[in-house]
């Protein structure tokens, strides 16, 4: 649960949060005054639960995008620390630098030893500057690939956690070949002879997400978004005004249910009621169970067949007629 003192509340969360605060106040009052308020509290709690169900069952695409960007949403390291019994981070691409927007390393997940790669945002301004807001440079993608080659060499499955507002658009990134770094990862990941599971845990913006997003299973937490461009980017181009982002999110069909329907992702991972930011432990546990379920299936498939199936999977994506 996010810390109470600096809790960030989205517009549509307000009625719920107000009610929850009222309940908490009543509890305190009951305790202090010794009055019997249990019935009233129970009634309000029931109402809160009802309200949560109503609101979260009918989220618009734009509201889900906001949840995906919630400043208290769990990020890769929050998941890693809760899911893994061991994690040793490995740094650097051995070419240019260590990209802090991608964390990657040796991990143990129950019975599996895996290579784990995740995009990492910061929780506050200082941390965000350090993490470059989760926007990797080419060296981030090359570090990820270096670790994937390690996975191949020592026959370890790869798990990637995707959460990025995009690959960084900057001078250095272009000079060092942002496009080439991403393209090469797609090229190599398509044929990597070990199981790969991709989990979108927040934002999946464009090539920046796909750069670590090719695999045998693509899973997505309930309130994540994934598309070819951010809603703001799309709105700025097609509506000539970024404030049309809500419409762009609707038009591009960016949510997990959309992507399941379009046969892009394999599974939606349920989030705690109200979103992953409401309960980190539960959120991480559900993601962990989903990864384990698929890992247990994938490790049984011989590498050659795995690669064939992966090719088949991506070959089918898209819509056309002839």
């Amino acid at each position: 649960m996010a810390k109470k003192k600096q809790r960030f509340v989205l517009e549509f969360e307000k009625p719920i949060v107000n009610l929850e605060e009222k309940i908490a106040e009543m509890r305190e009052y009951a305790l202090a005054s010794g009055l019997e308020l249990e019935d009233d509290i129970k009634r309000l709690e029931k109402k809160a639960s009802q309200l949560r169900k109503e609101i979260y069952a009918n989220l618009s695409r734009w509201q889900r995008v906001q949840l995906a960007r919630h400043p208290q949403r769990p990020y890769s390291l929050d998941y890693i620390s809760r899911m893994c019994s061991y994690f040793e981070e490995l740094h650097g691409d051995r070419r240019f630098a260590d990209d802090k927007a991608i964390v990657s390393g040796l991990a143990k997940l129950e019975e599996f030893s895996i290579i784990l790669i995740g995009q990492q945002k910061g929780k506050d301004t200082k941390e965000n500057l350090y993490r470059n807001f989760g926007m990797p440079h080419p060296e981030g993608y090359r570090k990820a690939m270096r670790l994937m080659e390690l996975a191949v060499k020592f026959n370890k499955p790869v798990v990637t956690l995707i959460d990025t507002p995009g690959a960084f658009p900057g001078i250095g990134a272009e000079e060092r070949g942002q496009a080439e770094a991403i393209a090469y990862n797609l090229f190599r990941m398509a044929r990597l002879p070990v199981p790969i599971i991709n989990v979108i845990i927040g934002e999946g913006a464009s090539g920046g997400a796909l750069g670590i997003g090719v695999g045998d299973r693509i899973l997505m937490t309930e309130n994540s978004w994934y598309s070819v461009i951010s809603p703001e980017g799309c709105a700025a181009i097609l509506w000539r005004d970024a404030s049309h982002a809500p419409e762009a999110a609707e038009a591009m069909k960016v949510t997990a249910p959309d992507l399941l329907k379009l046969k892009i992702i394999d599974e939606i991972i349920k989030e705690p009621e109200g979103g992953a930011h409401r309960d980190y432990d539960l959120a991480a546990n559900v993601v962990k169970e989903a990864i384990l379920k698929h890992l247990r299936e994938l490790v049984k498939i011989p590498p050659k067949k795995l690669i064939e199936q992966r090719m088949e999977k991506f070959s089918k994506m898209g819509a056309w007629k002839e």
Binding site: A190, G213, V214, Y226, A251, L259, L262, I264, F314, M317
Partner: peptide, 11 residues
């Protein structure tokens, strides 16, 4: 074409 376009890169 949203995500379908993105996946053409992978394909």
């Amino acid at each position: 074409e949203g995500i379908l376009s993105l996946m053409q890169m992978a394909k």
